[in-house]
């Protein structure tokens, strides 16, 4: 045993931990709304028992709010479950539209907290690629993290999966102060290992503030 931690494995674990922390935060927020709504129902019931009229409209609003939060929590848990299952098949045919939308949703709390709006421009037809879905998600997460940490006023990032001559690519536009030097700095050992594993290449277009992730 050398004591050296595999950089790819460590990056994957770090990614999974950050998503788990973000997801648990979201679930806690949803539970907090449910808790207040249920608490308010209890308040209204106690007041009704003491003879105060029950406000039916308010009851209806609270019930609607609770149902909405249950749906929200269910969607959060479903997305977490989909991420967890992306480790089932290490190499598989993947629809990049579905994958991009999932990671955009999972990263939403982090990007919104930094004041960013990330949108996915998804083509009508599937964009298929043979890939490792877990590490591709990890790489997209890192690219978004790189985007929201760029200095500058840009606050909107668009992700666009597309078919290309070599198969497929994913474009990220809206980067502030994007330079090749910055992109080189971004390509740390774990990122380089991910690109190698995924058989992908990263290119920066400084003028357009765009990064392209191409499948080779």
């Amino acid at each position: 045993m050398t004591g050296r931690i595999d950089p790819l494995g460590a990056a994957g674990l770090s990614f999974y931990s950050k998503v788990s922390a973000s997801i648990s935060h979201e679930i806690k927020n949803s539970l907090a709304v449910l808790n207040e709504s249920a608490g308010f129902l209890e308040d209204l019931t106690l007041m009704a028992k003491k003879g105060r009229d029950l406000d039916i409209n308010r009851l209806e609003t609270l019930a609607g709010s609770m149902l909405k939060q249950v749906k929200r929590s269910d969607a959060i848990v479903k997305n977490m479950n989909r991420l967890a299952h992306s480790l089932d098949d290490p190499w598989t045919q993947t629809d990049l539209n579905v994958l991009v939308e999932l990671i955009r949703t999972l990263s939403e709390r982090t990007t919104v907290t930094r004041g960013f709006k990330v949108t996915a421009a998804l083509p009508d037809s599937p964009v298929m690629a043979e890939t490792n879905p877990f590490f591709l998600k990890n790489l997209i997460w890192l690219i978004l993290d790189f985007a929201v940490n760029r200095p500058g006023n840009a606050k909107a990032i668009e992700i666009r999966p597309e078919k290309s001559e070599s198969g497929a690519r994913i474009s990220f536009t809206g980067f502030a102060n994007l330079t090749q030097v910055a992109l080189n700095d971004f390509q740390t050992e774990p990122v380089r290992r991910m690109l190698e594993l995924l058989n992908c290449r990263l290119q920066a277009d400084e003028n357009q503030g765009m990064i392209q992730l191409s499948f080779l």
């Binding site: 927020n29 907090a32 709304v33 207040e36 709504s37 608490g39 308040d43 007041m47 709010s65 909405k68």
Partner: peptide, 16 residues
């Protein structure tokens, strides 16, 4: 930033 949370909490505090 959770509007439903903060609005409901304010109402419940007001009752108290």
């Amino acid at each position: 930033d959770e509007e439903e949370f903060v609005a409901t909490l304010a109402e419940r505090l007001s009752l108290r």
